[in-house]
């Protein structure tokens, strides 16, 4: 299990953000992306998750390996915590949801409707979804937003267990999770210098 990015360039809304990024991440390791707002962290994560094609370069991953978690948790307000989680478990092949609930300290809230959860509880439910996917590569966009200190520790434990089990994780976060396995990557040096830089064959170049 390995994630390999080769000479990646990606763009958001036609504006190139990142160029010339290459890296390899092996099983059991985590990568934390850093950089100022708008530097392309979300765009890079969406590219790794396969939601948008890279402008240039390749993403090498085994098929069906990614579990993606974004700013929005994909929760349905009128369904209960257990129903929300059971749905995603069924989509990913039907695992048991009880361990995931326990891990994220949600067991007592299982029958509560998602609309009555606090922001931090919703986030924990969104992260519990990762546990039921049973997928090896976690791609996480700001996973610790609105979590309190105790919940951040819960989440760090979950990531550590995931890595120990042979998984790997790429995340954009500003909080230090205290993960020894994590490598930090500052995206600032990979900022695309001008349209079409980094071998990107941008159409707009044809006019310039």
């Amino acid at each position: 299990m390995e994630l390999r990015l080769t000479d990646i360039a990606c763009a958001r809304g036609g504006v190139p953000l990142i160029a010339g990024l290459s890296l390899t991440l092996r099983a059991g390791h985590a990568l934390v992306l850093r950089g100022p707002n708008g530097c392309g962290k979300t765009t890079l994560l969406r590219t790794i998750a396969g939601l948008q094609p890279p402008l240039a370069g390749t993403v090498d991953l085994p098929p069906d390996a990614v579990a993606y978690a974004a700013h929005a948790d994909g929760l349905k307000a009128t369904l209960s915590v257990a129903e929300n989680l059971r749905f995603w478990a069924a989509i990913y092949g039907g695992g048991d949801i009880a361990p995931a609930l326990a891990r994220m300290n949600l067991t007592d809230l299982a029958e509560r409707a998602a609309q009555n959860l606090s922001a931090g509880q919703k986030r924990r439910l969104g992260l519990a979804r990762l546990l039921v996917t049973a997928r090896p590569v976690w791609v996480l966009d700001e996973p610790t937003v609105s979590l309190d200190a105790a919940s951040v520790a819960l989440f760090a434990d979950a990531v550590r267990a995931h890595l120990a089990g042979g998984g790997l994780a790429v995340m954009a976060t500003h909080i230090d999770l205290g993960l020894d396995e994590a490598r930090t990557l500052d995206l600032t040096p990979y900022k695309a210098q001008r349209a079409g830089a980094g071998g990107a064959d941008s159409f707009d170049e044809a006019f310039l």
């Binding site: 993606y68 700013h71 929005a72 994909g74 929760l75 307000a77 989509i91 990913y92 092949g93």
Partner: peptide, 15 residues
Amino acid sequence: DWEDGSLDLLATAPI
């Protein structure tokens, strides 16, 4: 599904 992010998650799901 678009607003609450489910659509992104469904697009990366095995279906």
